[in-house]
Amino acid sequence: MSHEDIDHHVRIYMRVFAALVVLTIVTVGVSYLHLAPGPALALGLTIALIKGSLVACYFMHLISEKKMLLWVMAISLVFFFFELLIPMVTEGNNLHMGA
């Protein structure tokens, strides 16, 4: 990687950092609005998802990474969602969906 490439990267890091700070402020700010549980969850998780993707894509360079690593992470993400959702769905008969 040449020095110009690195300089370009550094500029991106700074922008991502700024975005992360702003989004953190937003997520805290929204929590003071005391939205209903449904919308609050959706909004909070969406912001977290955006922040997480920024970290993964730019700090961890996933956006320009080799396809093989993307496949590994994609597979584990698929199973990650199975882990999160299926236990809940399976117990669907016995659950109280309100927060």
Partner: peptide, 29 residues
């Protein structure tokens, strides 16, 4: 590089299980 990413993949599954536990206990109460 491959090794560390594979390790992180297993970490994703670890925290996935922890968050899954959180969800199940939260919606179950």
């Amino acid at each position: 590089k491959i090794g560390i990413w594979l390790f992180l993949a297993s970490e994703v599954m670890l925290f996935g299980a922890l968050f899954g536990g959180y969800i199940l206990l939260r919606v179950g109460s």
